[in-house]
Design a protein around this nucleic acid. Structure first.
Lengths: 120, 120
DNA sequence: CCAACCTTACCAAGAGTTTGTCAAGGTTTG
DNA sequence: CAAACCTTGACAAACTCTTGGTAAGGTTGG
């Protein structure tokens, strides 16, 4: 107990409600330690993280699901690759390509992306 | 008109509804060209992109807002840096640091992150 | 000029997210 | 041991996202 705060204490100092602290855990954004009997224990790192998260959400006007997705993006390399590929699809034609070549090239690129997607 | 499909034709060949094609544009995921009078024109690249997007959403079980956020993440370097910093917050102490040093170091890291966030 | 398109702007149903509250029960501590 | 915590689970209000529809009006092509 000397090594951290309980959920209500953590709520007090971070501005999150106890309910939200539990919710943040279920969506995978924090992982407080537990005592032998199952009580959550919030250490200084957690408290800082929680305060920073508030700032971050407000400053950039985004939601928890956005941060959760960003986390998923870091963990799932295939997802990242698939999205990168999709975004990179460009609008201009590469130099020296005919319209027909371009279309073929573009379709093949998407074929490759689809193959990647199917593997997921 | 010979250079692309109208919205209903594009809907037909991509599986998206015309309504959704307009919605995808409002959330920034596609940018069809326009005729002089304002009609949307979907070229082959758009059609491929739209088909790939369907596959991508289904394969990875994610939503449009997720893809939109991923796009924002690519465009907004500060947002990316802030999230990277937040995720990198580690749980173990660096070697050779006392508990007190670690806490100070950790707090300072978050101070730096907060400064970044404030600048946004 | 008329039918069949297209545009934007709304209203609304359904689903998912966020948040609170309450209930039933275990833990800690004075 | 009793008060004051904590746990999980469920129900629900408020909100946003997704999607469809419809209305009022401009464009196109036979």
């Amino acid at each position: 107990m000397t090594e951290g705060l309980t959920i209500n204490e953590a709520a007090e100092t971070t501005g999150w409600s106890p309910r939200m602290l539990r919710y943040l855990e279920t969506v995978g954004l924090i992982e407080p330690a537990r005592t032998g009997s199952g009580y959550r224990v919030f250490g200084p790192e957690h408290l800082q993280r929680l305060r920073t998260l508030r700032e971050l959400l407000e400053s950039f006007d985004c939601g928890l699901s956005d941060v959760a997705f960003a986390k998923r993006l870091r963990a799932d390399e295939q997802l990242r690759a698939a999205l990168d590929g999709w975004f990179e699809a460009r609008v201009e034609q590469p130099q020296g390509m005919s319209s027909a070549d371009w279309l073929t090239w573009e379709q093949e690129k998407h074929q490759r992306l689809l193959a990647l997607v199917d593997a997921a």
